[in-house]
Design a protein around this nucleic acid. Sequence first.
DNA 1: AGAGATGAAATTGTATGCAATCCGATTTTC
DNA 2: GAAAATCGGATTGCATACAATTTCATCTCT
Lengths: 237, 237
Amino acid sequence: MNPADGALPVRDDVQDDRAQAIRDALHNAIVERRLSPGAKLVETEVGELFDVSRTVVRASLQMLAFEGLVKIERNRGAFVAHPTPDEARQIFESRRVIEPEIAERAAERMTEADIRLFQAHLKDEERLLAERGPNARRAAIKASGDYHLMLASVAANQILERFMRELIARSSLVIALYGQSGASSCARSEHADILDALVARDGKKAAEVIRHHIDHIEEDLDYKLAGNAPLRQALRL
Amino acid sequence: MNPADGALPVRDDVQDDRAQAIRDALHNAIVERRLSPGAKLVETEVGELFDVSRTVVRASLQMLAFEGLVKIERNRGAFVAHPTPDEARQIFESRRVIEPEIAERAAERMTEADIRLFQAHLKDEERLLAERGPNARRAAIKASGDYHLMLASVAANQILERFMRELIARSSLVIALYGQSGASSCARSEHADILDALVARDGKKAAEVIRHHIDHIEEDLDYKLAGNAPLRQALRL
DNA sequence: AGAGATGAAATTGTATGCAATCCGATTTTC
DNA sequence: GAAAATCGGATTGCATACAATTTCATCTCT
């Protein structure tokens, strides 16, 4: 299993030590909303920050573009993705396809050790939600996503896990743009409900609960909020 | 919809004209089995072939690595992927998760025009299966995969469509490695059965048929065939 | 002869340079 | 005064140069 707190899980094997590291750092920054949708990522800036040449930065940005977290526009540069309402709908539709099945498989494979990890993680989530301040807020957002990734990791299918990693990260962007209540990612008790179903090894129930969970997250969105800044994007095209 | 025969569908938008082109060319070569699993892709060679510098080739190879069609080993280079039996199982499990749902959605959205495209495509598949010779064989393999991609394209979810594109391509690799009978990808009548269900707008049925179809494809595999060449790969590690 | 050491050729990883493109501000024109 | 044109700086796209690493063949020693 994937440590509940740790850095972003590595892709397949170690490939580009440094590019991977930068990718992970940017990935985290985006998921934790320290980088807002639409923000420009200048190659030289990132390069200086990590002390590597543009070549390496470029590789990282391309990776992020593949995950849909960054949009690269030719001759214009890389920007943190700014999902449209339509993309957002597709993201949640995809999650509704994949996550319930992941939950079913997780229910079959859940070990005692996994259960303890999930319980510990739930405690963390609770604690972070109780705290105040932007840092706790960020940590809570990340923890909420990580919960879903833990699920994927128990299901023991690395491909689906990677798909989920992409979908969760992009969901975070969508919520940042279109979430209304602060409570977006935080239907906390539902995470507990999911765990209950898993512990009971009731795959169908787990799938059902997760479907509702996804519904609830999406219900809290308002796609009419044009996202606080399609800025130049909107005016350009 | 995606033309039945055409080049690989573009990713999101036009990004790296040239890198994209090379990616597509290699992708097709792999899917059509003109490049075998394990084959090494030397950057300068590919570069000379397409008349671009290694920089561009590198970008293409990274894209392919993301799709799982190519494996990049640090300081050793890029190789056409050589899926293990375990990866193969994960690929088909993922397809069983995603494709039935895609079929259901496709059943809802299928237009008259789509139906005609599918019928035309089926005719093509039939014709190619009747022909002899390695080129017809290759075309048949590609056409079989394209059928599934057409389905994904009707379902109108670009994310799932991309996931499917990856899974189909990797399936082709798996079949090349572990397929026994030549008939692997060719349970032709099943493609027709799927279309029947779609035309009848019976989503559940379509999902069911496709599940069986995937089962049949996987049943024709023998993971004990260690794949005709883990070559250096096997001896190295 | 076979196991290991040695070195040259091939290949990849990364930095850098240059041309092309884009962006913003100022200037020009009506 | 507003629209258009112009220009300089900034930034990206791509090729290339160089260092690090691997690969493969030859040589050495037992």
